[in-house]
Structures are given as C-alpha cells and as structure tokens.
C-alpha cells in the first residue's frame, strides 16, 4: 500500500504567485525531485523545474526545501518531518522566471570577469598529488549556486555589482593555488571581487552539496593573501624599502 504525502510547491512568475498543494505517492528512498517529477507527470505538466543528472553531479535542481537551500535530487523525503507538508520554493536571491526556475545568468557574467587559467611559459608540467589536493577540492564545484543563494551579502544586501560570491571565491582560489598558473588575480580579488564583504559566517559552507570547505579552504586563504599584499604593515614597509 503506497503511502501519500502532501507537498506545497510555489507556482508563479516574476509577477508573483502562491503555494499550491499537491499529494504525492511516496516510495522507498524517494527524493524531493522524484516528487516534483510525479507532480509534473500527473497533476501539473507545466510545473517548471530545472534538472539534469538526478545524481548530484550537475547542480541544476537547486531550490529551498522547508526553507533550507538544497539540491532536490539529494533531499530524501524520509529526512523531512512527516507531520507537515513539504514546502518547495525557488532560490530567492536570483530573479524568478517561473515556479522553481530562477535566472542565474548573473553568475555566468561574474565568471567572465575572472582571468582564465594562464600557464607558466616554460614550466615543466610535473607536479605531485599533494600540490593539487587543494585545487581538486575546489574543482569539485558543480555550480549549483546554492552558496550564492544563501550568502547574505547577495541575498539580503544585493551586492551583486561589487561582490562575486562564494562560488567565485572558490574559482579564484582554484586558479590562484594552481601550481602552473602564472596570472595574478590578487588585485582583482581585493578591489573587484569584494572579498572584504565576506564576514565568514559560513552559510556557503553549510549548504555546499559537494562538502567543499568554502570558507576555511578558499575564502580565508584568499583573505590572507590579500592581507599579505594590502594590509600587513610590515610587509608593506619591507616592500617599500626593497622595491629598488
């Protein structure tokens, strides 16, 4: 005998909308995205949702489940309290397109501002695994943009024009710590990326579905590199003295 659970899913577009109630037949191991698909196939064929791999590898199905930013393909129904309907809403830091789909194109614009990988001209392409362990952690990022969604600098204060957001600090860190990269992105990090806006409250790390330690391993090391060049008074003095 299949069990049933009720869902409340946001339906609407940029002009507004409301939560609509649906009943879904549940099965073992079911995730929120399965439920959304079932609603699509049987009750609301036009329910808009992004998804691709259904295996937490593509980062398309980001949403807010019971108020928490999550990948729907990874959120099991048996982990959600059964006494109340499961609430599914779109990410709300980005402009709404329809239902669960938001306009995340701003993120792609930010990526263009970051100078690409620039190999050292004459380096030997050999390095050890321990040299790239850090970079490989950052490269796990699946660009689900949940970190961008939850970051209060973007979500509450809309600093998009002057703040790149956690995803792109991870990208900056991956490039800056690459053993064969020759470009210098520290000025950009300090002046354009707005790393100073980050007050390391770690919500990005909390929501990352890939368990990337965004704050500890990417943002704080970037902040420390910025301190090296722009804040450390002794280093600044030494640089002034020995510049010539």
């Amino acid at each position: 005998m299949p069990e049933q659970r009720s869902f409340r899913v946001f339906r609407g577009d940029a002009g507004g909308g409301q939560m609509k109630e649906y009943t879904v037949e549940t099965g073992p191991g079911m995730v929120v995205l399965d439920a959304v698909h079932q609603i699509q196939a049987t009750q609301a064929p036009d329910l808009a949702v992004r998804w691709n791999c259904k295996a937490a590898k593509c980062g398309s199905c980001s949403a807010e489940v019971n108020g928490k930013p999550k990948l729907m393909c990874k959120t099991r129904l048996d982990d959600l309290p059964a006494d109340r309907p499961v609430e599914v809403r779109p990410m709300r830091t980005f402009p709404l397109i329809k239902d669960l789909v938001t306009d995340v194109s701003w993120n792609y614009e930010v990526n263009k501002k970051i100078p690409p990988f620039t190999p050292k001209p004459n380096g030997e392409w050999r390095w050890m695994q321990e040299d790239v362990d850090r970079v490989q952690e950052f490269r796990k990022c699946i660009e689900c943009f949940l970190c961008q969604n939850v970051c209060h600098v973007l979500r509450e204060h809309q600093k998009q024009p002057e703040f790149f957001g956690p995803r792109f600090f991870v990208r900056l860190a991956a490039l800056e710590m690459h053993p064969m990269d020759a470009a210098d992105r520290l000025d950009l990090t300090h002046r354009q990326s707005g790393v100073g806006y980050c007050n390391i409250t770690k919500c990005c790390t909390e929501v990352c579905p890939e368990d990337i330690h965004i704050t500890d391993n990417a943002i704080i090391p970037l902040k420390e590199r910025v301190v090296d060049r722009f804040y450390d008074p002794v280093r600044r003095l030494l640089r002034k003295l020995f510049r010539r």
Binding site: D13, Q40, A44, P45, D46, L47, A48, V49, I97, K98, D99, V101
Partner: peptide, 13 residues
Amino acid sequence: GVAEGTRLYNPGW
C-alpha cells in the same frame, strides 16, 4: 497537447 500553462518555461510543452 499542452493542457496547462503558457509558453513561459513549460516543461510539458
């Protein structure tokens, strides 16, 4: 056919 919705992001369509 498209039973519900408009041209705006309509997966059924």
